[in-house]
Design a protein around this nucleic acid. Structure first.
Length: 765
DNA sequence: CACAGGTCTCTTTTT
DNA sequence: GAGACCTGTG
C-alpha cells in the first residue's frame, strides 16, 4: 500500500496497529488522513475484515467524512467499517437490546427541551419551588451525574447529607422513573445505559467485543467518563484501541468532557504507545506562532509545538472598534472588498464568535451588503415550535408511553382540553395504575371529566387512526403531511393568516421535504429511523462546504474545520474569555479552557486571520464596556498588524466623507469628533472616542450603513415585494435620494410606507 | 379556557 | 433584547 504521501510520524500512526495507541495530533496535522489510511492499512495489509473495525466520532459530519474517505480508499464491501458517532452507535445497540435493561426497543430520545419539560412537571408534583432551585440546575446536576455513570440511587446515597443535593437526588430518582415510564432516554442515557447494558448483560458485551477487533476514536480529548468506560469495555482484552486527539483542543468540559482521559491515557493503558503529529499542513507560520503564543500560557498540557513549512504569511489583523455595530460593519466590508478583489470567495470566509447572540448584528450587516451567508447554530430547525409539535405527534405514534409528547400536542391545535382536565386524567391514571395514554383511552370512565371526555375521545381517535396508517404507509413524508393535515394543525395556521403563521407553514413544508429526502435516501425508511436521525443531528451537520457562502458560527462549532480567511469577532475580556472564567481566576481551569478555545479559533485559519473587538456592545439588554481580550496580548506583538486602517485600505475610497461626517455631532462629546477622521481607528492604544458614543445604536447603524455604495433595488415600480414586518405590497415609487433610494410601498395590510431601500430588506416576490 | 399584556430573569459553549 | 412566566379579563 502506498504510504508515500505521509510523513514519518503519520506513517507510524498508520502502521502501529496492535495494542493501545495515542496519537497526539495537533491542529491541522492530518489526523483524519492518518485514521483513514490506518483503516485501509488494516484491511489491505493486515487482512482485517472491515466488519471488525469501528471508528467513533462526535458528529455525524465527521463520521460521514470519514466514511467517504475510507470508501474511496478501500471501497465499501461487506457492510464495511462501522463508522458512527458515540450517540448513534449507542442507539443502534440499545435498539437491539433495550429490553434487556427494562426498556422497550421503540424508545424515544428526549432532547434537552423534553428533559426540561419533564423536570418542570416533577418539580411541580414534588412541590419544589422552582424559583429557589432552577430547572437548569437540576438538569446540569443530573447530566453530570450521568456522565460520571452515577445512577439516581447511588446519587441519593452519596449526597444524602447535603440539603440541596438531597433535593437533586429526589428529583433525579423521579426523573429516572418517569423516563422509564415514558420509555424514553435522554442524551446522556444513550451512553450511560449502553454501559449499563454491557455491565449487566455480559453476553451482549461479548457479542460486540468479538466483533470489534480494532477501535478508533476521534477527538478523544472531548470524551467524558461514560464514553471512556464504553470504549474501554468495547476494547476488551484485545486492547487494539487507537485514540486520536489534541489536549489543546479540549473545549467541552461543560458537557462533561474529561481532559484527563487524554492526559492520562498512558496510565489507563500501561502498554500504550504515543505518537505526536506536530507538522501542520494548514496554516502559515505567522498563524501558528500566534496560536503557540496563546496556548503556551496553559500549564496542564502535553508538551508539543506545531511547525510548518509554510514560512511567513500575512500578519494577523487586530482592530478594536467603538461598538459592535462598527465591528460588524468592518467585517462585512472587509469580506466584500476581499471578494471583489478576487482574493477570496465567500466560501473561504468564516466568522467565529464566542456566543450565538453575537450573530445577529453580523447577520444584519452581511444582509445589507448582499453577502451570502449561513449561520450555524442558534435555534435548531428541529426545536422550532411547529416542528417540535409535529414531531411530538410522530413520537406519540411511535411510542404512546411518551407522556411529554402527548401533553405537548393534546391541545395543539386547540381542542378545548385544558390543564384541569389533564390533571383529572393524571390522577385517574395514578389511582388505577394506568399509563397516561391508557387513561385517555378510558376518558369516558372518568366521571369528573364531563364534556371534556368527548374532546379527548376525538384526540385519541386521531392518534389511533394515524397509528393505523403507519402500518400500511411506510413513507415518512406522507405520514408527516397526514399528521399536520388530519390534526387540523395546518388548517389552524392557515386561518391565522399572519406573517408568522405563514412562516410556520413554510417550515412544515420544509419538514415534509426532509421526510421526502429521508424516504429517498434510506433503504428501509422507518418512523423510528427518521425520528432517530432528527434527534441526533448536530448543528454543524448541515454545513455544506461546497456552497459559496460565508459561514457564521461559534468557536465551538468550528472545531475540525478550516478556512483560508477567518474572522474572530468579539475579542473582549468578559466576552472572550467569558465573565465567568475571569471570575474563576487567571490560571483557573475555566480560563485554560477559554484559552484552548482561542487556540482552536486561531488554528482554523489557513492564510489570513482577522481579530476584532468592540469597546461597547449590548449584552442582555445592557451596554457593556470592555477592553481588548487578554488573549490578544498573548499573541507576540510582532505578529500583529494593528495599524489604523483607513477606508482607503478597505477599498471604499471616496465614501469616507459622507460616512463619518454627521451634520450635528452630539453636544457633550462634540470635541472628540474629527480627531481621527475615521472610526475605524485602532483604539487598542488610542484613547480618542468617536461621536458614535452618544448615539443610539439604531441611528448609528443607519448612518454608517450609508458608507456602502447604494445599489439599485432588485425591484421596480409595480413589483410585488415582501417586507419582514409589513408583509406583502406593491412598489408605487422609487426615488433617488442621493445616499440611498427611497421606496414607497403600498402594503396590503399595513398601508403605504416610505422606506430606504438598503434597510428595508424588501424581497421581490 | 383562551388570550393579551405586563413582569421578571437572564450565561456562554452542545451531542 | 428575548423568552419564559404570571395574572387579569372576557
Amino acid at each position: 500500500m502506498q504510504l508515500d504521501g505521509l510523513n514519518k510520524e503519520q506513517k507510524l500512526g498508520v502502521t502501529t496497529t496492535e495494542g493501545p495507541l495515542l496519537i497526539l495530533a495537533g491542529a491541522g496535522s492530518g489526523k483524519t488522513r492518518v485514521l483513514t489510511y490506518r483503516t485501509a492499512y488494516l484491511i489491505e495489509e493486515m487482512g482485517v475484515k472491515p466488519y471488525n473495525i469501528m471508528a467513533i466520532t462526535f458528529t455525524n459530519k465527521a463520521a460521514k467524512e470519514m466514511r467517504e474517505r475510507i470508501d474511496k480508499l478501500v471501497g465499501n464491501e461487506d457492510g464495511g467499517v462501522w463508522v458512527s458517532t458515540f450517540h448513534s452507535a449507542c442507539v443502534r445497540i440499545l435498539r437491539r437490546f433495550a429490553e434487556r435493561i427494562g426498556y422497550g426497543n421503540n424508545f424515544t430520545i428526549y432532547d434537552s427541551d423534553d428533559s426540561k419539560t419533564l423536570i418542570k412537571h416533577i418539580l411541580k408534583d414534588l412541590q419544589i419551588d422552582s424559583k429557589r432551585f432552577k430547572e437548569k440546575m437540576f438538569m446540569g446536576e443530573i447530566s453530570s451525574a450521568k456522565n460520571e455513570l452515577i445512577g439516581s440511587l447511588e446519587y441519593r446515597n452519596r449526597f444524602s447529607n447535603d440539603y440541596k443535593l438531597n433535593v437533586v437526588g429526589q428529583v433525579y430518582q423521579e426523573y429516572e422513573a418517569r423516563l422509564r415510564q415514558n420509555n424514553a432516554f435522554d442524551f446522556d442515557d444513550l451512553i450511560m445505559k449502553t454501559v449499563e447494558l454491557f455491565k449487566t448483560v455480559p453476553e451482549v458485551l461479548n457479542l460486540y467485543q468479538d466483533r470489534l477487533h480494532y477501535i478508533m476514536v476521534d477527538e478523544y480529548q472531548d470524551t467524558n467518563n461514560a464514553q471512556f468506560q464504553l470504549i474501554r469495555l468495547l476494547a476488551g482484552r484485545r486492547q487494539n484501541l487507537c485514540v486520536v486527539g489534541d489536549d489543546d483542543q479540549s473545549i467541552y468540559k461543560f458537557r462533561g468532557a474529561n481532559i484527563y482521559n487524554i492526559l492520562n491515557f498512558e496510565k489507563h493503558f500501561p502498554d500504550a504507545k504515543v505518537i505526536k503529529l506536530e507538522q501542520n499542513y494548514r496554516s502559515t507560520q505567522v498563524i501558528l506562532d500566534a496560536a503557540n503564543g496563546v496556548i503556551k500560557n496553559n500549564v496542564g498540557r502535553k508538551a508539543k509545538k506545531l511547525w510548518t513549512e509554510k514560512s511567513g504569511g500575512d500578519k494577523i489583523t487586530f482592530r478594536q472598534f467603538e461598538s459592535a455595530y462598527e465591528e460588524a460593519d468592518y467585517i462585512a466590508m472587509d469580506i466584500t472588498s476581499k471578494c471583489r478583489d478576487g482574493l477570496y470567495s465567500y466560501m473561504d470566509d468564516a466568522i467565529l464568535y464566542r456566543t450565538n447572540a453575537q450573530s445577529r448584528i453580523l447577520e444584519e450587516k452581511l444582509m445589507h451588503l448582499n453577502i451570502p451567508y449561513k449561520i450555524i447554530g442558534g435555534v435548531n430547525f428541529y426545536s422550532r415550535m411547529e416542528i417540535k409539535d409535529i414531531l411530538s405527534y410522530l413520537h406519540v405514534i411511535e411510542n404512546v408511553q411518551d407522556e411529554i409528547a402527548i401533553r405537548r400536542i393534546i391541545n395543539v391545535p386547540k381542542r378545548g382540553i385544558g390543564a384541569a382536565s389533564l390533571e383529572k386524567v393524571s390522577t385517574f391514571a395514578r389511582a388505577n395504575g394506568y399509563s397516561f395514554y391508557e387513561s385517555l383511552l378510558k376518558a369516558k370512565d372518568i366521571p369528573t371529566l364531563g364534556k371534556a371526555a368527548d374532546k379527548i375521545k376525538k384526540f385519541t381517535d386521531l392518534i389511533e387512526e394515524l397509528r393505523e396508517d403507519t402500518k400500511t404507509n411506510k413513507r415518512i413524508a406522507l405520514l408527516i403531511r397526514n399528521v399536520y393535515e388530519m390534526s387540523g394543525y395546518a388548517e389552524a395556521l392557515r386561518l391565522e393568516n399572519t406573517e408568522e403563521s405563514k412562516a410556520r407553514l413554510e417550515n412544515l413544508e420544509e419538514l415534509y421535504a426532509k421526510g421526502v429526502s429521508y424516504d429517498e435516501g434510506t433503504e428501509e425508511p422507518t418512523l423510528t429511523g427518521f425520528l432517530e436521525e432528527v434527534a441526533l443531528v448536530a448543528q454543524i451537520d448541515d454545513l455544506e462546504e461546497s456552497k459559496d457562502y460565508v459561514v457564521l458560527m461559534t468557536l465551538h462549532s468550528a472545531k475540525g474545520l478550516e478556512f483560508p480567511n477567518v474572522y474572530m469577532a468579539g475579542m473582549e475580556d468578559g466576552l472572550f474569555p467569558g465573565f465567568m472564567s475571569m471570575m474563576a481566576g487567571d490560571d483557573s481551569e475555566d480560563m485554560e479552557e477559554e484559552r484552548r478555545l482561542c487556540y482552536v479559533g486561531i488554528t482554523r485559519a489557513k492564510e489570513r486571520l482577522v481579530m476584532t473587538a468592540a469597546k461597547k456592545r449590548m449584552l442582555r439588554g445592557e451596554i457593556q464596556y470592555s477592553s481588548a481580550s487578554r488573549f490578544i496580548k498573548e499573541i507576540p506583538n510582532n505578529l500583529l498588524d494593528n495599524n489604523s486602517p483607513s477606508m482607503y485600505e478597505l477599498g471604499f475610497a471616496g465614501r469616507k466623507e459622507d460616512t463619518f461626517s454627521p451634520k450635528k455631532p452630539a453636544r457633550s462629546i462634540a470635541t472628540s469628533y474629527g480627531s481621527s477622521g475615521s472610526s475605524y481607528q485602532n483604539s487598542y492604544s488610542s484613547t480618542s472616542s468617536s461621536i458614535y458614543g452618544a448615539r443610539k445604536p439604531s441611528m448609528a447603524s443607519g448612518s454608517y450603513g450609508s458608507g456602502v455604495q447604494k445599489k439599485l433595488p432588485a425591484y421596480i415600480v409595480g413589483d410585488k415585494v415582501k417586507h419582514r414586518k409589513f408583509g406583502e405590497g406593491v412598489v408605487s415609487d422609487i426615488l433617488d435620494k442621493g445616499r440611498d433610494y427611497e421606496v414607497t410601498v403600498l402594503f396590503d395590510t399595513a398601508g403605504p410606507k416610505k422606506m430606504f431601500a438598503s434597510f428595508a430588506k424588501l424581497e421581490k416576490i
